[in-house]
Amino acid sequence: MNEKKKVSFMQSASPVTILTSGNSLGAYVPGIRLQERLRRRGIPAEAEVLERLFPEEVRRKLVRTKQAFHNSFGAALMGTRLARDIGPVLDTEAVEALLERWQEQGRRTFLAMTGFWLPVLEQYGRRVHPDPVRVEFLRLDAIDTPSYRVYRDTYQRFRHHWLFRLEGEDPVLHYRLAMSDEPLVPYAEREERIVVHGGGWGIGTYRSAITALQDRFALDLVAYQPEEAGGARPCDRIYMTDPDWHPWSDEPEQRDQAAYPPTAEWKPNEPPVYERGTDGPRLYGAIRRSLAIVSKPGGGTLVDSLSAATPLVYLEPFGEHERANALLWERLGFGIAYDRWARSGFAIGILDQLHNNLKRRALSLSDYGGMFP
């Protein structure tokens, strides 16, 4: 944005409204990072979490579903086929209160990280008509996710910004989203450590890879319950998000901050101290210093991989959109399937080449957080 346009936007007074979802940290964390980046550029921004519009019993059910999916990858895979319009689930009073606040504050610029915000945005557009409302979507996966597929007949009316995309069989890169203001860590200066996680919900086959990796590397492991830290060795680090925290549970004064997930580096026989990152999410600090991420190929993991130039060793995908993500990353030379890497004897030389590919492309891309709005 040129300076004249930036000043004009700032004088409009109304914040940019970033629409996130706690249903996936892969949508929530990039949204919070964008809020942080815009504010540092002097642009007012406020993030909203979709689940604050759900009735309490629906949020409780979501927490139970999260646990069920963590316990059973099969159940999680089945769940991807059950996505539907969330409009009937929303609490009408909560929606009315939100739309009234937006209208009073003159909100006119919205950037959504998930398609599930579409029915709320359409309702707001009708409410303030004929005043123009700018609604755009930031796409964090290679193809449509379930949150967009359910609105296929209407979502194409809006502008969509893809960070990366699989267009037919062709991989395309448009932007990166820098998850920290820190520069890339040279690969030769990185520790011989691997980050292993299952995304925000702890989904997938990541636990089955830990033992083989421990024979060769120190690990940065994400645990989702305290008992999951039992297999760690002294050289491993364990990161755990506060299990009682949910993206929709922050108090109003915390919502004005960059409310990254409160995360602790867990240590035996010590109470966990949960802290929020002050320059990107706390786990990202481990990712930018590691040799690789071993995880399912979620959109948020791709964002981290490209931002840090850290290769992705991908496990079994969660749904068709993650299958497309894996194909995209492999065709770009940014990632490799875990089984194939294991057959190479976990060769670091393979990771080094993937890192070089990532670094070369990442440094050539514009940072989306420095461009919007």
Results as ranks from 00 to 15, higher is better:
171 P>D: 07
48 E>K: 07
13 A>V: 15
249 S>I: 00
184 L>A: 12
321 H>V: 02
123 Q>M: 12
305 S>Y: 07
38 L>P: 11
198 G>E: 03
39 R>G: 10
56 E>G: 14
101 R>M: 09
25 L>S: 06
131 D>F: 14
152 R>N: 12
138 L>R: 07
325 N>S: 00
66 K>E: 13
215 D>C: 00
72 S>L: 01
335 G>D: 02
21 S>C: 13
61 K>I: 14
240 M>Q: 04
116 F>G: 01
175 Y>T: 08
20 T>Q: 01
70 H>F: 03
304 D>Y: 11
6 K>T: 13
123 Q>G: 13
359 K>F: 11
205 T>E: 00
270 E>S: 12
145 T>D: 00
261 P>R: 04
102 W>V: 02
240 M>W: 03
68 A>P: 03
290 S>M: 05
45 A>F: 01
177 L>V: 03
185 V>D: 07
145 T>V: 08
53 L>A: 08
219 L>Y: 04
300 G>P: 05
224 Y>G: 02
54 F>D: 02
273 V>A: 12
301 T>Q: 07
126 R>Y: 14
327 L>S: 14
295 S>I: 01
339 D>E: 15
48 E>V: 11
17 T>E: 01
305 S>F: 04
355 H>V: 10
75 A>S: 15
280 G>K: 00
3 E>C: 10
104 E>L: 15
356 N>S: 15
157 R>F: 09
4 K>H: 14
157 R>M: 10
273 V>L: 10
76 A>C: 04
284 Y>Q: 08
270 E>D: 08
70 H>C: 06
335 G>H: 05
31 G>K: 06
45 A>D: 01
73 F>P: 02
68 A>C: 10
157 R>I: 06
269 N>V: 12
114 T>W: 11
20 T>A: 07
105 Q>T: 13
349 G>R: 03
153 D>Y: 12
222 V>S: 04
224 Y>A: 04
359 K>S: 15
98 L>D: 11
96 E>T: 13
362 A>I: 13
56 E>Y: 14
326 A>D: 03
306 L>N: 03
210 I>D: 01
211 T>E: 12
236 D>C: 09
77 L>E: 07
31 G>N: 08
198 G>Q: 08
